[in-house]
């Protein structure tokens, strides 16, 4: 999956948008991985992720389907993958320091601004192994929703956050029917991997709502 690779937006906004994934590899380090993954997932919680989801639940941390203890307790199966999102680079750095110390041997992937990750890796003493670079969108790009909508929708790389839902949320914020935070939780819901960043979404809704033309009050 490359579902966090094509997040769009300004550099300033992407400065507060990172994803961290815990990925065991089938046939290489699956066996006995469950307790290790659970310990790493605990670090994600305690370091303050902006969003979080293990594949055992497929519900993000705002869904209220389980307490944090229940979410962690659900990680009992070898090979469980864990997805998370970070809006604060300092918290992300603390997480990576602790993950390095924990040395559980499971692959960790960070998605975000290359230059930021480079500096962080240097400071922590990590030796990044592989990079997956996005070469952008090709083909009939004129059919796409506009860039200001895509900066929301691409936070779910599986395209589960519909452009129409973003417009709906903008309309509701603009007309005072809801707050930018509440709408960001609405927008985070369809993302089954828990990598929609509601903090960044709140900022963007607040930025865009004043200038957004609504056709229906």
């Amino acid at each position: 999956m490359t579902h966090s690779l094509h997040r769009e937006g300004t550099i300033d906004s992407l400065e507060r948008d990172y994803c961290v994934f815990i990925y065991p590899a089938r046939g290489f380090n699956y066996a006995g991985s469950a307790p290790k993954i659970r310990r790493l997932a605990e670090l994600i919680y305690t370091c303050g992720a902006a969003n979080f989801c293990p594949t055992t639940l497929r519900e993000n941390m705002y869904s209220e389907v389980a307490t944090p203890e229940e979410v962690l307790a659900s990680i009992q199966k070898d090979g469980t993958r864990v997805y998370s999102t970070w809006n604060n680079p300092e918290k992300l750095k603390q997480l990576l320091i602790k993950m390095k110390e924990a040395d559980e041997g499971i692959s960790i992937v960070v998605s975000g601004l290359i230059d930021r990750v480079r500096v962080m890796a240097r400071e922590i003493g990590l030796n990044p192994h592989t990079i997956n670079m996005s070469l952008g969108i090709h083909g009939r790009t004129e059919l796409l929703p506009p860039a200001d909508i895509r900066q929301f929708t691409t936070m779910c790389g599986h395209a589960m956050v519909a452009p129409g839902l973003v417009r709906n949320s903008l309309r509701r914020v603009k007309t005072g029917k809801s707050t930018a935070w509440d709408e960001s939780i609405v927008l985070a819901k369809p993302c089954a991997c828990g990598i929609y960043n509601p903090y960044r979404s709140e900022e963007m809704l607040n930025d865009l709502a004043p200038v957004y033309a609504v056709s229906r009050w």
Binding site: T2, S4, L5, H6, R7, I11, L14, Y23, A25, G27, F28, N29, Y30, A31, G32, L96, M99, K100, D103, E104, G105, I106, S107, I108, V109, V110, S111, G112, L113, I114, D115, V117, A121, L126, N127, P128, H129, T130, I131, N132, M133, S134, L135, G136
Partner: peptide, 17 residues
Amino acid sequence: PWRPNAKINVGLGRAWE
């Protein structure tokens, strides 16, 4: 051109099976 954000495997994994 490539985008400024990427997906980076930070090299903490190892095989044991």
